[in-house]
């Protein structure tokens, strides 16, 4: 069963004071996330990631479309007990201590009274804040608030968690801990849906990713499959310090190191490059395909339409 199924969810805002015009925050989105997977929702700032999450959380209402979470209509209050949500740059009631805040959220999530204290202590320990439970949140740093945000999202043992930019505000150690936590959640059988614009996080963690840009889904799939389709580059290394002039026409970036030359050029030009080396009687040492990264795929998916839009504007 799909943990999350988005069926044509769309959000259009009216902007302007006198002359109203429509702004598409999210064009009809179709997406399915399987149970137990870590799903990355990628896109540049303003792509529609947060809008999608707000729609799923019932914070804004869609113009059209629907979604199913764990088999229920996403508006069904029952399903919300099974959801954990970390908003982007979370802000909490700063007059409360971390323990009071989590106890309050546990009450709202319907955690039984006798279990609350234990759950709160356990989750504080899990996010690395075991000693500051009694400190008011107004004294917390941005990174500590982010940890509290993660704590409140997993406090009630949800089956699916939605994280909006979970690494935001964290130092390298904190980012590593959050990555580990997300992997632990996966091992516990939970589904993790997280949005980010940091591609290395997604590449390291996700079973599958979707790329969204200008409110439109641009690609979806397993990271390895997506990157294998990217038109890659090859690295050619030969002996000597000479660079044939014809290589420049083949878009090769050349670097001379000691008595070898290393050139990176588009895959489709590799045969022409080898011919050029042969003509110049240069000894080929190696020819290695350069593995495409998620970033390459991301740039490829975003770039072409940008150019088209640039022309039309």
């Amino acid at each position: 069963m799909a943990a999350l199924e988005i069926i044509g969810l769309e959000k259009t805002y009216s902007v302007g004071f006198w002359r109203k015009r429509s702004k598409h925050a999210l064009r009809p989105l179709h997406l399915a996330v399987e149970e137990g997977e870590i799903f990355g929702f990628l896109g540049p700032n303003g792509a529609g990631k947060t809008t999608t999450l707000k729609l799923l959380m019932g914070l804004v209402f869609p113009t059209s479309g629907s979604a199913r979470i764990l088999g229920f209509e996403w508006t069904d209050p029952k399903v919300k007990a099974q959801i954990g949500f970390l908003p982007e740059q979370p802000y909490f009631y700063d007059y409360l201590t971390a323990r009071e805040l989590l106890a309050y959220y546990a009450q709202l999530s319907g955690v039984p009274a006798k279990e609350r204290r234990r759950r709160v202590d356990a989750v504080l320990h899990r996010v690395g804040l075991p000693d500051v439970g009694g400190v008011q949140l107004r004294k917390f740093s941005k990174g500590m608030l982010q940890r509290v945000g993660i704590a409140q999202a997993i406090l009630h043992n949800p089956r699916i968690v939605f994280f909006d930019e979970p690494m935001s505000g964290l130092d390298p150690m904190g980012r590593r801990e959050v990555r580990d936590l997300m992997e632990q959640l996966k091992h516990e059988g939970k589904t993790v849906f997280f949005s980010t614009h940091v591609l290395s996080d997604a590449e390291a963690l996700c079973d599958r990713v979707a790329i969204i840009h200008q409110g439109e889904l641009r690609g979806i799939g397993v990271v390895a499959d997506l990157t294998s389709n990217v038109h890659g580059k090859v690295e050619v290394v030969w002996q000597g310090t000479r660079v044939p002039s014809s290589l420049k026409a083949l878009e090769a970036e050349c670097h001379v190191t000691g008595d070898t030359v290393r050139a990176v050029l588009p895959e489709e030009n590799q045969d022409a490059a080898i011919d050029a080396l042969r003509r110049e009687h240069l000894r080929l040492i190696s020819l290695i395909p350069v593995r495409a990264s998620l970033e390459d795929y991301f740039v490829q998916k975003l770039a072409p339409r940008e150019k088209v839009e640039g022309v039309t504007v």
């Binding site: 707000k54 914070l59 802000y91 909490f92 959220y105 709202l108």
Partner: peptide, 14 residues
């Protein structure tokens, strides 16, 4: 404004 509402309304709260 402070978005404290997000973590309340994403729970089973009408």
């Amino acid at each position: 404004d402070r978005r404290t509402l997000y973590t309340v309304l994403s729970r089973p709260v009408r």
